[in-house]
Design a protein around this nucleic acid. Sequence first.
DNA 1: GCAAGCTATTGTCCATGTGTCAATAGGGTT
DNA 2: AACCCTATTGACACATGGACAATAGCTTGC
Lengths: 205, 205
Amino acid sequence: MQPPVQRRRLEPDQRRSEILAVARTLFGERTYSAVSVAEIAQEAGVARGLVNHYFGGKRQLYLEVVRRMLIVPASVAENLPRTTIEERISICVDRWLDVVERDKELWLSAIGAEAIGQDRDTEQILLEADEVATDHILQAAMMSDVVEGRTELRAMVRAYGSMLKAASREWLVRGALSRADLHVMLTRSVLHLLRDVFPAVRADS
Amino acid sequence: MQPPVQRRRLEPDQRRSEILAVARTLFGERTYSAVSVAEIAQEAGVARGLVNHYFGGKRQLYLEVVRRMLIVPASVAENLPRTTIEERISICVDRWLDVVERDKELWLSAIGAEAIGQDRDTEQILLEADEVATDHILQAAMMSDVVEGRTELRAMVRAYGSMLKAASREWLVRGALSRADLHVMLTRSVLHLLRDVFPAVRADS
DNA sequence: GCAAGCTATTGTCCATGTGTCAATAGGGTT
DNA sequence: AACCCTATTGACACATGGACAATAGCTTGC
């Protein structure tokens, strides 16, 4: 005989938030498969079935968490002064470093969490995040409206994005690079990519 | 009453290979969690338990597959002519592109398969592969014996490795970059990284 | 204040998947 | 041909995820 379970009835939105918060925490500190729905439910003080009810399933819940962390906040490329490209890029990089430094663990697990394996949904989120990031960079470089070789340009910037992530990881987890190192590297690399490599690729075709 | 199962008794090594081959195929075309041990066993004409017997478990089997695909073949940086760095790097990049083009699907799923989530073992393999790749690049650039700022150098090259993977993916799956584009981009980027960015980072400290 | 209805929440049932292990049988050896 | 070694099997235990009908908390109308 356990004491009668007392239920808390909440607004769906709020309940959703609570579960999401717990999920964020747990997925933040452990792997996808190492976290069970049961655990999330328990930690959230809720029946297991309810998690399914709100999110459809474990995967979808997880994806929701990842999405929220991965989409780069627009603030990174907002209100940039109208000065040189160097300056604008530099500021942009700085703001980026701020963001990942602040939400360190969460960000790390989110990207390290290209995890799960690639199904359509995961892929979709990753792609979406990459596109958003690419937009920000091009915006900072005032190259948003390039049309000749736009496809190639964006592809190269997306690839650069991967280097950016990897370098950030080197900084945050290994400590092999200092924040200053990162700033130099990331700024110079993207400038070189946009001003030298891109034209060279264009000229090649 | 099914006809009595006829067993095939093989040398452990050979059986291991057979199972591994099947696993390679299946993991190549589908996600980790979308492939069951049962399926692998069936496809290999073997009892499920045997897979566990040989590889310990699903994860270990998977890791074995990934390891074999991820460790960059030494051939990429072997027998490079003693000419300019540009030339050597160029050849190296070309060979690399050959490798991934050949084993396309497999390579894609292996890296997209930073999958599973990061446990110690997976991480280990990924790190190992990155180190090997880094060695090759430094060897091609004849910078293997740099000592001042070695840590930072290697970290930057590892980050570059991520861009290389991402760019390769852009080529193979999106087709947003041609092989020629890739060659230009990858060659120039790494040269810039080694000759301009690295010194700049050094100077900064 | 009370009853009734809406729906948030629960607990249970079922399916699938993995790991383990004792029992079985293939194939070489004496 | 009898025997032994071990590759191989099949069944069992256990964990986890998804589905769904039953239940109970809030709110609304009178």
